[in-house]
Design a binder for these strands. Structure first.
Lengths: 202, 202
DNA sequence: AGAGTCGGAGAACGTTCGTTCTCCGTTGTC
DNA sequence: GACAACGGAGAACGAACGTTCTCCGACTCT
């Protein structure tokens, strides 16, 4: 019927669900997960508690939805950053320029998956899994970028480690220049990889 | 008495305080800070709540004491790891072998300062400051190691980023091989630094 | 117009938190 | 042996948590 059809339409796009996720993302990322209660979330998302619990069955499900949201946002944005670079070298270094922009944003407070892992992983296995999946996929992404450019998977791992280190260090010390330092380190690793590749090709 | 003498030998200053700190360290590190209540800490440290509050005025003060404890432990251990290496190159790489051993321990769950920052920094400025101080001191340590070996401070920063990235990645994915990957990346950066140093010297 | 559904505001519930307090047995001292 | 001081176990406190429920006004559909 019409009502059922409306409900299905609403669910597929579901602006309410999205509004809750984005509000939760802001609050959880800014203050930590346990520090933000359902009432603060209700207020920030401008939703009644009743509606909130019709969309999500529990706080943990909201946390997991926020992690999903951040994961796809991150994946899309770094893919876009890489896509607009032409040379293999520039594509491998694009991540550090993306990080540089991120570090400068006011709300930057490190990687939400690292924060969630530290705070919730022991008590919520689902959070631990999502964090591990996210990091594994990023690692896989860098490895593919490396092999597509004719380098070893290992180089991708190394560039991933630099990006991870830059995120935590920039967050805690507030020094956004860490992105540039990681980039220069990556350039050095690339030059080493290029010379060994030249040797092995010959 | 003999018992008192033993206690003093074991712990020069305040064995009760030390016992509380170590119990808190174990629980907070394993489960997160907010997840561990004072009652769980009381139980694990085998101290009554009353005595606990005579030693520390609040939970936050215990958290800060734990961070101090971890900081000096970390500083002492990496200094010892570096000290037993002879060549400048080995001294710069010693950190990654230290990390490899740490990653293999059952209780390893990443850097407690990163975890504390993510969970508590917004609500407790003192925690944010301690985390930043810790990371700054580690950075300074690596920079000094680099300059003592005749390299640039920048190289120390780069090696620091690799160590930080290895910590978080190993914690979340459970892959302790990250220490070795970071080490090999560091070796590449060292070889680049050695060649440019040779150029500049000449 | 009237019956029935929906959702908003927020009270209520049971639990847990950090912190304080009460009771009471054990000490050391004169 | 009397007594003050200490400390252990855990009750008590107010606040805040996640979650559910109550009330009630505003809609929809015939």
């Amino acid at each position: 019927m019409a009502r059922q059809g409306d409900a299905q339409l609403q669910q597929s796009a579901d602006p309410l669900r999205q509004r809750i996720i984005e509000a939760a993302d802001e609050l959880y990322y800014a203050h930590g997960f346990r520090a933000v209660g359902m009432d603060a979330l209700r207020q920030h998302a401008r939703v009644s508690l009743k509606r909130l619990y019709t969309v999500f069955p529990s706080k943990e499900s909201i946390v997991l939805a926020v992690l999903d949201y951040r994961h796809t946002m991150w994946a899309d944005e770094i893919a876009a950053a890489v896509a607009q670079e032409g040379t293999p070298r520039a594509r491998l270094l694009a991540i550090y320029d993306y990080l540089a922009g991120w570090f400068l944003s006011d709300s930057f407070r490190g990687c939400v998956f690292i924060n969630a892992f530290g705070e919730l992983a022991t008590e919520s296995p689902a959070v631990a899994i999502k964090a591990a999946d996210h990091k594994r996929e990023f690692r896989r992404f860098m490895e593919q970028l490396a092999t597509e450019a004719g380098f070893s998977e290992e180089l991708g791992d190394q560039l991933m480690l630099l990006a991870e280190g830059a995120q935590t260090t920039a967050a805690i010390t507030g020094d956004s220049a860490m992105a540039l330092k990681a980039r220069r380190a990556a350039e050095s690793l690339l030059s080493v990889a290029e010379s060994t590749r030249a040797q092995s090709v010959r």
